[in-house]
């Protein structure tokens, strides 16, 4: 049998295709097919029991009913805010891990970031609920210290959702940041300092440009995680707090309205895709470079 690498180009490509075939089939069956099915679902409308016609009604409903796009915009804005908050908190943490600590201390801090992931998201979120509810630990502590006159309800605010989302996503921001900051040569920072740079200008001119692929990668992953999160906003959010995933769940499971749910799902997909595209454009990164960082 001839050496595979020596054959003509098409032969090599065929061989590669055959080798990849199982994986491609798998991807197709698990990801593409259900998506096609959902797409078809989103473009039909129920007119009578068991009778459906092709229609744009589901998408029309989304735009006609302010409720739905309010939730949509709210989900996007809050995810964005939470992503930025995660970045602001994760950056010093990543900096400490990558640059300030050595050896075991650095590994220890990394593990501290990892610990929340040893329990399931449900347990984590319930933990927050126990901490923050009016009869919980934190309000009692605040009242005891005299910060507040009586225990206050810290749960069921938008800020609570942000805290929960940031907590859940921190690791996914820290990891790409650490890897991109670790690859930053310390002598570049010293050189910039030596040439008259201040902390801020070094951060802006040297550190951030160097870490840009890591920052973008972290932000994309975290933003998508937040956009697609269901448990945290649902459990920590107040009675007025709607998350778009919750709306999709409601349409599919509670309302039996798969058509509407599918349409909402595609709108969410479009949102996350366009935000990622926008993020890449704004930060001047290429998708491939960024994904290698994650």
């Amino acid at each position: 049998m001839p050496d595979a690498t020596s054959g003509p180009a098409w032969e090599r490509r065929l061989l590669l295709g055959l080798l990849l075939a199982p994986a491609l089939l798998w991807l197709f069956a698990l990801i593409v097919l259900p998506q096609i099915d959902l797409a078809l679902l989103s473009f039909r409308e129920r007119v009578a029991p068991r009778e459906y016609v092709a229609s744009l009604a589901q998408y029309r409903t989304f735009f006609a009913e302010p409720l739905y796009w309010h939730v949509f915009v709210r989900t996007a804005v809050m995810s964005l805010a939470a992503t930025l908050a995660t970045l602001l908190i994760a950056f010093p943490v990543a900096w400490t891990i990558a640059k300030l600590l050595r050896g075991r201390l650095s590994a220890l801090l990394f593990v501290v970031c990892l610990i929340p992931f040893w329990v399931s998201e449900t347990v984590r979120t319930l933990g927050w609920m126990i901490l923050l509810r009016e009869s919980g630990v934190l309000p009692a502590l605040l009242a005891h210290l005299g910060v507040t006159a009586a225990p206050v309800e810290l749960l069921y605010h938008d800020a609570t959702i942000l805290v929960g989302l940031v907590y859940t996503s921190l690791l996914f921001m820290v990891v790409p940041l650490v890897s991109s900051l670790e690859s930053l040569d310390n002598s570049l920072i010293e050189a910039a300092y030596d040439l008259g740079g201040s902390g801020w200008s070094i951060l802006r001119e040297i550190v951030i440009p160097h870490a840009a692929p890591g920052i973008t990668a972290g932000c994309i992953v975290v933003f998508m995680l937040m956009l697609g999160n269901y448990l945290t906003p649902t459990l920590l959010g107040g009675k007025s707090s709607q998350w778009f995933t919750e709306q999709i769940y409601t349409q599919f499971i509670v309302r039996f309205n798969w058509e509407q749910g599918a349409a909402f799902g595609f709108l969410l997909l479009a949102l996350s895709t366009s935000m990622v595209w926008l993020g890449l454009k704004l930060s001047g990164q290429r998708f491939g470079d960024v994904m290698r960082r994650t």
Binding site: S187, E190, G197, E205, I206, P209, H210
Partner: peptide
């Protein structure tokens, strides 16, 4: 006086040129 305020500049062993510029 910090390194950024000294009338001294340094050429580093690995040169430390800024690759992003």
């Amino acid at each position: 006086v910090g390194p950024n305020r000294r009338p001294v500049n340094m050429v580093f062993q690995q040169l430390a040129l800024f690759p992003m510029m």
